[in-house]
C-alpha cells in the first residue's frame, strides 16, 4: 500500500538518514533532478549505503535513476539494484521501448547479482506529451511495470503551458493516466504539489487526485506526507459502509439469495470489490470499524 511517496535528495545525508521518520509509505531516493552532474557518483554510493545500513522498516524503498538518454542510468542500476529496492522509477519514459530497454538491463543486473528475475519493479515516470499518449502501451508492455507516475513539471514544459496550482493544464494527463493504468491493471500516482508553504493547497490537490482515481501521491516535502496519507486513507464512513456491505453479502448467502440491497441500493460486484479493498486497506492501517456501542 502506497498512499504517499516522499522524494529524498540523493546526496543529502541529513534527509536520507531521517527519511524513515516522516510517515511516508514509500521513499524515493532521487539520483536524477536532485543531484548535480558532478555529484552523481557520490549520490549513488551514499544512497547505496543508506539502503544497506539504515533501517527503513515499514517504509518501501524506491530509487529514481537517471533517464535512459544519459550516461548515468546503467551505473545507477549497477550500484542500486543489488540493494533490492521495491521499484525503480524511470524518468522521461516516452515509449514501451524505453521500458523494455530498462527492463532488459535490469534483468541482466539481477542475473549478475543472483537476484531472481523480476524482483525489482518498474514505475515509468510519464512527463512528456509522447509519454501521455503512449501511456496504456507503456503500462502494459512488461510485467515489471507496477504503476504509472505522473510528472507534471516537465510535462507542462513539454506542453508549452504554465504549471498552475489549480492544475487545469494537467487535467487531461491525469485522467488519461488513471484510465491507462487501470486498463493495464496497475497502480497510478499523482505528481507532487510543489508549494511547501501552502497548507490548504496540498489538501485540495490531494483530494482532486483521489477523486480522479489515483492510488496515491508523491511529495517533495515531508510536510505534505501527513496530509496525503489522510486524504488517501479510507474515511470512517467508508470503512463502516464497507463492513455493512460485507455483512449484507454474508446474510444474503446464508439466506440463499443471489442479490441483496442495502439502504435501498442493489449491491453488485463492483460495490463488493470496493468494500473488500476498503477493508483490506483499513486493516493494513489498523483502522477499526466504529464501535456501535460508542
Amino acid at each position: 500500500m502506497r498512499r504517499s511517496m516522499l522524494f529524498l535528495p540523493g546526496n543529502n545525508p541529513n534527509m536520507l538518514i531521517n527519511g524513515n521518520c516522516f510517515g511516508a509509505d514509500a521513499v524515493i531516493f532521487d539520483l536524477e533532478d536532485a543531484v548535480s552532474p558532478q555529484e552523481k557518483d557520490a549520490a549513488r554510493i551514499l544512497v547505496r549505503n543508506t539502503m544497506r545500513y539504515m533501517d527503513f522498516n515499514g517504509c518501501e524503498m524506491i530509487v529514481r535513476i537517471n533517464s535512459i538518454d544519459t550516461d548515468y542510468w546503467k551505473k545507477d542500476l549497477d550500484s542500486l539494484l543489488p540493494e533490492k529496492p521495491a521499484i525503480i522509477l524511470l524518468p522521461k519514459t516516452c515509449t514501451p521501448e524505453d521500458v523494455l530497454l530498462a527492463d532488459e538491463y535490469m534483468t541482466q543486473v539481477e542475473g549478475k547479482c543472483g537476484i531472481e528475475k523480476g524482483t525489482v519493479g518498474l514505475m515509468p515516470l510519464i512527463e512528456t506529451a509522447l509519454g501521455v499518449e503512449n501511456s496504456y502501451r507503456i503500462a502494459s508492455c512488461s510485467n515489471r511495470v507496477k504503476a504509472l507516475f505522473l510528472g507534471a513539471e516537465d510535462l507542462t514544459a513539454d506542453l508549452q503551458c504554465k504549471r498552475t496550482k489549480e492544475g487545469r493544464e494537467i487535467e487531461y494527463a491525469r485522467t488519461r493516466l488513471v484510465v491507462a493504468a487501470r486498463a493495464a491493471g496497475v497502480d497510478v500516482y499523482d505528481t507532487p504539489f510543489t508549494d511547501v508553504n501552502d497548507d490548504a493547497g496540498i489538501v485540495e490537490d490531494a483530494k482532486t487526485a483521489k477523486e480522479l482515481g489515483f492510488t496515491g501521491k508523491a511529495s517533495i516535502s515531508p510536510r505534505h506526507v501527513e496530509t496525503i496519507n489522510a486524504v488517501f486513507s479510507p474515511t470512517q464512513a467508508e470503512i463502516d459502509y464497507a463492513y455493512e456491505v460485507m455483512g449484507a453479502i454474508t446474510l444474503a448467502k446464508q439466506m440463499g439469495k443471489g442479490a441483496i440491497s442495502l439502504h435501498g441500493k442493489m449491491i453488485d460486484a463492483p460495490i463488493v470489490a470496493r468494500a473488500e479493498r476498503t477493508i483490506s486497506m483499513a486493516e493494513a492501517l489498523g483502522l477499526d470499524r466504529r464501535d456501535i456501542n460508542e
Binding site: 534527509m15 531521517n18 521518520c21 516522516f22 510517515g23 516535502s221 515531508p222 510536510r223 501527513e226
Partner: peptide, 9 residues
C-alpha cells in the same frame, strides 16, 4: 527543519 516539524507534530 523537517525533523523538527515531525517532532512538533
Amino acid at each position: 527543519d523537517p525533523v523538527g516539524l515531525v517532532m512538533a507534530s
